[in-house]
């Protein structure tokens, strides 16, 4: 485990050099969605008796934690293919678990920043929700899962262009379909079956329930933890294989 702090510290230092750009970039997407969908659809629209904006905010938070967690893949790729800094970690006397832990924690940190921006914006737009322990736990589990996936895929892709393809074909569809903008129950039955297997559906469900002050259902937490753990182990394997 020793050495994870060095990996995390490097990422934080790099983030510091571009903090304002990062914060601005993290703010654009939720702001557009809140304005376009929240206000564009009007205050009269409700979902299951809840104002649409109150329904949307936890979904946006789930999507943001997924995107921010997964985005570390691009940074790992830049470090690997462009700056070649990844070699520094490979020649250091640290185990793969230290590298993966440092990167995944950075993914969680970025997700926390992104979701904090959304909750701040929601507050500014007058939507008061309950950001309790269950909300943040689901958010962290979701970010953990997607950051682990990001490390695995970053080790498997052969170029930065491959990385963009993964975002187009995996992350963007998940972001739109996993119960972020509309209730999954409105979809055809066969689509609901597919969506049940997407982690983002479980994250959105858990975060929305917590934010709306409902009694937490443990199933999404178990699903997110289990898939997250499997992907973390995958990441360890992929980092080890990257030596060859």
């Amino acid at each position: 485990m020793r050495g994870w702090t060095a990996v995390y510290y490097r990422e934080i230092l790099i983030l510091k050099t571009k903090i304002f750009r990062q914060l601005a970039s993290m703010s654009v997407m939720p702001l557009l969605y809140i304005v376009a969908f929240g206000y564009g659809l009007g205050n009269d629209v409700t979902v299951h008796g809840v104002p649409y904006l109150a329904f949307l905010i936890p979904g946006l938070a789930a999507m943001s934690s997924m995107i921010q967690g997964f985005n570390i893949a691009s940074e790992i790729n830049i470090a690997r293919f462009y700056w070649r800094v990844f070699e520094e970690f490979q020649v250091a006397p640290i185990h793969s678990i230290a590298y993966v832990t440092g990167e995944v924690l950075f993914g969680i940190t970025k997700a926390l920043m992104g979701v904090s921006i959304i909750t701040g914006m929601a507050w500014l737009f007058g939507t008061r929700l309950s950001y309790n322990f269950y909300f943040w736990t689901a958010m962290i589990l979701n970010a953990f899962l997607f950051a682990s996936l990001a490390v695995s895929l970053a080790m498997l892709v052969k170029s930065h262009a491959d990385q963009a393809l993964l975002v187009n074909f995996v992350i963007t569809p998940m972001g739109f379909l996993g119960g972020t903008f509309f209730p999954v129950e409105k979809m055809p039955h066969w689509v609901q079956i597919i969506l049940k297997y997407l982690p983002i559906t479980h994250a959105a469900k858990a975060m929305r329930a917590a934010a709306l002050g409902k009694q937490p259902d443990m199933q999404p937490y178990i699903v997110l933890s289990s898939i997250g753990l499997v992907l973390f182990l995958c990441a360890l394997f992929c980092v080890g294989k990257a030596r060859d």
Binding site: R10, R84, E87
Partner: peptide, 13 residues
Amino acid sequence: GYVPQTINLDHEL
């Protein structure tokens, strides 16, 4: 210690 052929420093840091 290892000094690779290509520069692999973090340029922003």
